[in-house]
Computed example of a mutant assay.
Amino acid sequence: MTDRATASIPHEQAVGGSVTVKDVARRAGVSASTVSNVLHGRSSVAPEIRDRVEAAISEVGYVPSAAGRLLRGGRSEIVQLALPDIRSPYYSALAHTVIRQARALDLVVVVEETTGDAEQERRVASSHPNRGIGGTLICPVALSSEDLAGLRPRTPTVLLGEHTAGDVFDQVCTDSRAAAQEVAEHLLGTGRRHLAFVGSPDGAGTGPGTLRLKGLREALREHGLTLAEGAVLPAASFDHETGARVGARIADARAGGLEIDAVVCATDELAVGILHALRGRGVRVPEDVAVTGWDDAPESRYLSPSLTTVAHDLDDVAAAALRLVVGRKADPTRPPSRHVSPHRLVVRESTAPPA
């Protein structure tokens, strides 16, 4: 159904800013709320209705408010950066780095927090250019590789982290397995032999926690060692509070006879909580138990003891991700590519050899 009044809206009027959601709704023959649902990527809209609305958006030249002003002015392209939790020291540092590097490319970054919700991640990863977005950087934690493979983004989209083989999306990641092997070799070099891992269920998968666990196992296997029964401790969240709860369990397990002389944590936040809990239970770090983290959060160097951790090259991550977005825009048909950013092991007091 087409409304004649809106069918004659000229493009010059559209880019001048007078076209509204109601105009799109009349052109598509739907309600304004349906147009809003499409603009926000909500899954409640039937595919045929979504296609009709998106066609109407293109026909009348509608561009959402703030994003539209930037695009109409020709000053900047908008890139959305979708992260699970912007309170995380790692994700906030990543956002800071991406924004800084994007500014040099005349790109504007809009940060979205998905809270690890699958529907939010799906909405972001399926972004349509008519929503004012020229590219997407997303770190998914809820969507599986199979979920991601079923999506076909309409804007250049780059995955951040080891969440898929990269057969659909461009991807920037670090080598978690190799880094975990370096952590294990370091701990074994200090005389530790009874390692534990915190941060992933003991199962299959391609997420960073699982890959770090695999790397740890592989390194131990080369030395004829294994992780003991009960030495793999899953974490529902990778935060301080979860780390403190797991740390208490580790202290109790040691008191009950389980030999643990080193704990490898999937994030620095987990490690901070574990350090707090072990100290409260009278377990000395590093004399009784060594502790390592991941991400080199700013707080890791100021703890007592300071925390041994794996550091990512965030400048390389940001530069590669933005380069892939720009390259995908220039050549939408090229095969997806995977960039592996460097990492380094930062050795501090929490893994000093026991006296």
Rank of each mutant, 00 (worst) to 15 (best):
residue 2 T to S: 05
residue 7 A to F: 13
residue 9 I to L: 10
residue 9 I to T: 11
residue 12 E to K: 00
residue 17 G to H: 06
residue 19 V to E: 04
residue 21 V to I: 15
residue 21 V to L: 13
residue 22 K to C: 07
residue 22 K to N: 13
residue 23 D to N: 13
residue 24 V to M: 08
residue 27 R to V: 03
residue 33 S to W: 02
residue 33 S to M: 11
residue 38 V to H: 04
residue 46 A to Q: 13
residue 48 E to L: 05
residue 49 I to F: 01
residue 49 I to R: 11
residue 50 R to D: 10
residue 51 D to F: 02
residue 55 A to K: 00
residue 55 A to H: 01
residue 60 V to R: 03
residue 64 P to H: 02
residue 68 G to Q: 00
residue 70 L to N: 01
residue 77 E to M: 10
residue 78 I to A: 03
residue 79 V to P: 07
residue 79 V to F: 10
residue 82 A to I: 06
residue 85 D to I: 00
residue 85 D to F: 00
residue 89 P to I: 13
residue 94 L to T: 15
residue 95 A to Y: 10
residue 104 A to L: 08
residue 106 D to M: 11
residue 108 V to F: 13
residue 109 V to P: 04
residue 114 T to I: 07
residue 122 R to I: 06
residue 126 S to I: 10
residue 130 N to D: 04
residue 133 I to F: 00
residue 134 G to K: 01
residue 134 G to S: 06
residue 141 V to H: 08
residue 143 L to Q: 11
residue 148 L to R: 12
residue 148 L to G: 13
residue 151 L to G: 13
residue 152 R to I: 04
residue 156 P to H: 03
residue 160 L to I: 15
residue 161 G to A: 07
residue 163 H to M: 02
residue 169 F to C: 14
residue 170 D to I: 05
residue 171 Q to M: 13
residue 172 V to H: 04
residue 176 S to V: 12
residue 179 A to R: 09
residue 179 A to E: 10
residue 181 Q to W: 01
residue 188 L to D: 01
residue 190 T to P: 06
residue 197 F to V: 08
residue 198 V to Y: 05
residue 200 S to C: 15
residue 200 S to M: 14
residue 202 D to M: 02
residue 203 G to V: 11
residue 212 R to C: 07
residue 212 R to H: 08
residue 217 R to Q: 06
residue 219 A to D: 12
residue 220 L to C: 15
residue 221 R to Y: 02
residue 228 A to W: 02
residue 231 A to L: 05
residue 234 P to Q: 03
residue 235 A to H: 09
residue 238 F to M: 10
residue 240 H to Q: 10
residue 243 G to D: 12
residue 244 A to V: 12
residue 246 V to H: 09
residue 247 G to D: 05
residue 250 I to G: 02
residue 251 A to Q: 02
residue 254 R to W: 01
residue 259 E to S: 10
residue 260 I to Y: 03
residue 261 D to I: 00
residue 264 V to R: 01
residue 265 C to A: 14
residue 265 C to H: 14
residue 266 A to L: 15
residue 267 T to M: 10
residue 267 T to E: 04
residue 270 L to E: 08
residue 276 H to G: 00
residue 279 R to M: 02
residue 281 R to G: 02
residue 286 P to H: 04
residue 291 V to E: 06
residue 292 T to Y: 12
residue 294 W to A: 00
residue 294 W to D: 00
residue 294 W to R: 05
residue 297 A to H: 15
residue 301 R to D: 08
residue 303 L to Y: 09
residue 304 S to T: 14
residue 311 A to F: 06
residue 312 H to Q: 13
residue 314 L to N: 07
residue 316 D to S: 12
residue 317 V to P: 07
residue 319 A to Y: 02
residue 324 L to H: 03
residue 327 G to P: 04
residue 327 G to C: 09
residue 328 R to Y: 02
residue 333 T to R: 09
residue 333 T to C: 09
residue 335 P to A: 06
residue 335 P to N: 05
residue 336 P to M: 01
residue 340 V to N: 04
residue 348 R to M: 11
residue 352 A to M: 03
